[in-house]
């Protein structure tokens, strides 16, 4: 319990510190009034708008207003849409989350088996080819791969749609697209595109982990006990190898959700990333701040979950934390 409480306090500290940084940072990037008001507007109109948005007050007062709002669950109202910023973001959140979860699933399902194989036979042609492919996955820019995927699968082959999200159905009140055929088709290309980099990362982690674990005495001892090779690999090796992989993947999951921006832009995926880009262009401060704050919150939560998962995988952590 003390362990959980300790992590909770750390998380809250991070959120508080980020609130200050984010607010000041966004304040510095330009005057939104220039973007909001038509060039013909007179000084009185400009002053009225500035007063309405609360931009005439000193920075500290604006910040305190923001903080008190946040404490009441209000992250401010979008300058552009005139809607609560949090609602704008959360409306788009399921789409991004679905994309991110699909991408991470692909990365795990493809990356771990390939990484383990590459780690078990590092000197054979198969092992070397897997590593060569993973270097490609690392080095090719996401936007270019996305365009190539559209070129091949949408333009030339005509198999999959290139933009947007397909039909959605409600699941526990959240719109999801992976349960419909059209939704799956729309999801496939962006998910693969987003997964590419992560898959390469997982391959490398899994390979390094496998190579380290496979030389340990306990693997040799497991073989000396006469266990079938499948059990040696799937239980003895995998359970130890997964500890660093879970840590990194967990942390990466946060970044996949928060920064799916490029993929969402290329595939016109109606997610949070696209909202962020347009909000930055239009200097829609409350949305940017709310987005970044939610991202911080997401990272804190993900870190917390990873710590718990870590304890689940490694009994040695469990005892120290208790």
């Amino acid at each position: 319990m003390g362990y959980v409480l300790n992590r909770l306090i750390q998380g809250l500290t991070v959120i508080a510190a980020m609130a200050g940084l984010v607010f000041v940072g966004v304040y510095a990037i330009g005057n939104p009034v220039d973007m909001l008001i038509s060039p013909e507007a007179d000084q009185a109109e400009i002053d009225a708008t500035i007063a309405r948005l609360g931009l005439d007050k000193p920075l500290l007062e604006q910040f305190l207003n923001f903080v008190s709002g946040v404490l009441h669950g209000d992250f401010g109202t979008s300058f552009i849409y005139n809607e609560p910023a949090v609602r704008l973001i959360l409306d788009r959140f399921p789409a991004t989350l679905e994309l991110a979860v699909s991408a991470v699933l692909i990365a795990i399902l493809v990356g771990i088996p390939l990484g383990v194989i590459a780690g078990l036979i590092p000197d054979k042609p198969a092992g070397r080819s897997i590593m060569a492919v993973s270097i490609l996955g690392f080095s090719l820019p996401t936007f270019w791969v996305g365009m190539m995927l559209i070129m091949i699968f949408s333009v030339w082959l005509g198999w999959l749609p290139s933009t947007g999200r397909g039909e959605t159905v409600e699941l526990f009140g959240i719109p999801v697209s992976f349960l419909t055929a059209s939704g799956l088709k729309h999801l496939l290309l962006p998910a693969i595109n987003l997964a590419l980099f992560k898959t390469s990362l997982v391959i490398r982690l899994a390979r390094a982990g496998t190579r380290e674990v496979v030389g340990q005495d306990y693997i040799k001892f497991a073989r000396a006990k006469g266990l079938p090779e499948s059990r040696v690999i799937l239980v003895h090796l995998l359970k130890n190898m997964m500890i660093p992989v879970v840590t990194v993947l967990g942390l990466e999951f946060g970044s996949v959700v928060a920064f799916a921006v490029v993929t969402e832009t290329v595939f016109a995926w109606p997610g949070m990333g696209r909202l962020l880009i347009s909000s930055i262009v239009q200097l829609d401060r409350p949305v940017i701040v709310a987005y970044l704050m939610l991202t911080v919150l997401l990272f804190v939560i993900v870190n917390f979950v990873v710590d718990l998962l870590y304890a689940l995988l490694d009994p040695r952590v469990r005892r120290k934390g208790a």
């Binding site: 005495d217 000396a224 006990k225 006469g226 239980v235 009994p315």
Partner: peptide
Amino acid sequence: LRELRGNRIAMIFQDPMMTLNPVL
């Protein structure tokens, strides 16, 4: 060989700190 290992012929290793799988 797998059938015999651990069954008819067994082994004890040098370093007991490394022989048992830490996560099982």
